[in-house]
């Protein structure tokens, strides 16, 4: 799919980065949703991607997970060129994501949703045999449900859950198996202040080896759970830095924080 010749893909074999994007662009017709994005994130690093609507943040996620293939550029995941990989191959290598608008199986129960997520990154996805009660994946699913505080509703159909609970389930699905890197797409959107505090607690208590990128409009959430920030505007990266640098940057304030934060 990529216009970049193979030689360039081989040139920097293993860089030690969890995620590395080089010159990634994505066109929708004449519109460049992403243009020439180059980005690298270390293993275990936690980063926020900020920017106004239409800045290309979600398109960036879709390119990394393989929902869209980039029009040009190279994406490496732990040194491996995954640019041409279908989404499920990237997920099996330890990449996870959540969706801005909850993308769940509303006709299944909470525990079955999480169980499916655990199945997806294990072997025997095609098993015709029902698991026994002491199934390890079943246990994994139950402890994940517990980790996002949903044990009380684990046998309820997801369609019946409150909005905030669905958002928490969305996170549980992304934590299944052995994630190495997670993309969180506006996990706090629509949550109440208490639920936001819960979310911050879940994010900060993730094991240190799991890195993530978080798209978040709520600065109180975003800047508390990351160590670095990437600012995007019109499909381009225009600033990277520590949270405090970004907050005090005059250009950033003008472009992004300007109106709203007066």
């Amino acid at each position: 799919m990529s216009a970049v010749p193979n030689l360039e893909r081989l040139s920097t074999a293993s860089s030690g980065n969890a995620l590395e994007l080089r010159g990634v662009s994505r066109l929708f017709g004449a519109l460049a949703a992403l243009s020439d994005v180059t980005l690298s994130v270390r293993p275990g690093e936690r980063r926020a991607v900020l920017g106004s609507n239409g800045a290309g943040k979600t398109t960036l996620f879709n390119c990394v997970t393989g929902d869209f293939s980039p029009s040009s550029g190279v994406i490496r995941f732990f040194g491996e060129d995954v640019t041409a990989f279908p989404p499920h191959e990237r997920i099996r290598r330890g990449l996870r994501r959540t969706y801005q608008i909850s993308s769940l199986f509303t006709g299944l129960t909470v525990i079955d949703n999480v169980y499916l997520a655990c199945r997806g990154v294990s072997r025997n996805r095609f098993s015709l045999r029902r698991p026994r009660r002491d199934d390890t994946l079943q246990h994994a699913a139950e402890s994940l449900v517990d980790a996002v505080h949903l044990t009380a509703v684990k046998d309820r159909l997801v369609g019946e859950l409150a909005y905030g609970q669905q958002r928490q389930l969305e996170i549980a699905l992304a934590l299944s198996g052995a994630p190495r890197f997670i993309l969180f797409d506006e996990p706090a959107a629509g949550l109440s202040p208490t639920e936001r505090a819960d979310l911050v607690q879940i994010l900060t208590s993730l094991p240190a080896h799991i890195g993530y990128i978080i798209i978040e409009h709520d600065m109180d959430v975003a800047l508390r759970v990351v160590e670095s920030v990437t600012m995007m505007h019109n499909g381009r990266i225009f600033k990277e830095g520590r949270p405090d640098e970004i907050e005090s940057d005059p250009e950033v304030q003008e472009l992004y924080l300007g109106g709203g934060h007066g």
Binding site: P87, H88, F105, D112, L116, G120, R125
Partner: peptide, 23 residues
């Protein structure tokens, strides 16, 4: 069984199934 459960998942939300590691 897992196979049937996953099949129902692909019916309801194929994109999410891919994002969970299912082909």
């Amino acid at each position: 069984a897992p196979f049937g459960l996953a099949l129902q998942g692909t019916r309801d939300n194929p994109r999410r199934m891919a994002a969970l590691g299912f082909d």
